[in-house]
Design a protein around this nucleic acid. Structure first.
Lengths: 211, 211
DNA sequence: GCAAAATCAAAACAAGCGTTTTAATTGTTG
DNA sequence: CAACAATTAAAACGCTTGTTTTGATTTTGC
């Protein structure tokens, strides 16, 4: 078993288990036995559990931000003014597609992202902001330009409304879809849900606030 | 120190600590030492940590659902058809006011609610659904009647979008407001944010889905 | 093919966890 | 006031946690 094998086997197992149960509820023993490696391998290769958690995020964040940046570049280069729907599409579809292309499950990414915000892991929030900050600011800038005349504070809060709707819905996608199947005898695919999300978020962002 | 003292001191401490750090990250020793009571008191009065967690939620859910029901009764009795904004207002302001009236911090409730969804506590989700289910169904029924012609599946998803935006935003209200203060030199009160939320959610719910 | 470095494996470590047990103390009731 | 029940207190139990240590085993570079 080569080094890269062990490292990526640990990352694979940790990613799945963290997304299922959270960080504290997942022990290193569960991770290493799932991965089929020795317990000490985590501390050897990553240093600590904290650093393992960050490494799991790194593997998601890199392709996500790269594809988003490329998507934005492409559309900005095309010249025409960017519409709200177009930007949200670049964010949702572009980001998701970028993850899928690298073999990373987008829903799992959303679950982990939600946990990073909820689970009181200070180091993780700081790490994500430092890694995410530029992408976020660029996207927010383009989006606000597509909403001329919007009050900055209103815009600021609506961005968080959208972030909350996205993270919450996608991180619980399977559970929500299961209830849908039971109650309505219908079901939704992830792309369908992203379509609905783009549409709903755009309407929300454009709502007349009367100020 | 009377019994009710010990019990409510434990609940008070647990509520604050759970909302700050999550359930697993908060030990019974931290709770009891914060509350100034003996470690064994939790297991004596509540049985187990799980049951303590549920008791903390019980103290929130009861006033919340009761005030919401009363608000809905009042408006339904008034006769006129209920508008989307009116219903959302009953939910947000009514529910929040009901908590505040009983001395329970609404933001803390939202943080705990978010954790119940994210933290992989199966027993909690089941408990909340059984305690919350009727209120939820009644509210959803009234809301869908205020949105004539909406596709049921679209409505279903948008309800979750709204739930996500609400839980996420309000549970991180302080953190978001802190960034706002730093970047914009502005700040928002909770009532202001609820106003924005009602407005944004209503626009989202009413968005034309073209089907 | 040998020496050095990197990796793996097993065991032990100290600390923290939820819970239980036992005893002392308080409050209540006849 | 005595007797009983309810509550508090202190200590210990068994278990799990993240991390470290110690050797064995590969892999790598010359």
């Amino acid at each position: 078993m080569t080094q890269t094998d062990t490292v990526s086997r640990i990352l694979d197992a940790a990613e799945v288990l963290f997304a299922e149960r959270g960080f504290t509820e997942t022990s290193l023993r569960t991770i290493t036995s799932t991965a089929g490696v020795n317990l000490a391998a985590v501390n050897y290769h990553f240093g600590s559990k904290k650093e393992l958690i960050q490494a799991v995020f790194e593997r998601f964040l890199t392709p996500f931000t790269e594809t988003l940046a490329a998507e934005l570049d492409r559309r900005v280069a095309a010249g025409e003014a960017l519409e709200v729907e177009e930007l949200l599409d670049a964010l949702f579809r572009g980001g998701v597609a970028g993850l899928a292309a690298k073999g990373r499950d987008p829903q799992r990414f959303m679950r982990l992202l939600g946990m990073a915000y909820t689970q009181h892991q200070g180091h993780l929030r700081r790490y994500i902001v430092s890694r995410y900050g530029d992408s976020y600011r660029r996207f927010a800038g383009l989006l606000s330009r597509a909403l001329p005349g919007i009050d900055p504070v209103t815009f600021y809060w609506r961005l968080y409304f959208m972030l909350g709707a996205t993270i919450f819905t996608l991180s619980s996608f399977d559970a929500i879809d299961a209830i849908l199947r039971e109650d309505f005898d219908a079901q939704s695919s992830l792309p369908e849900t992203l379509d609905r999300l783009v549409l709903a978020a755009a309407a929300m962002l454009r709502a007349d606030s009367g100020d």
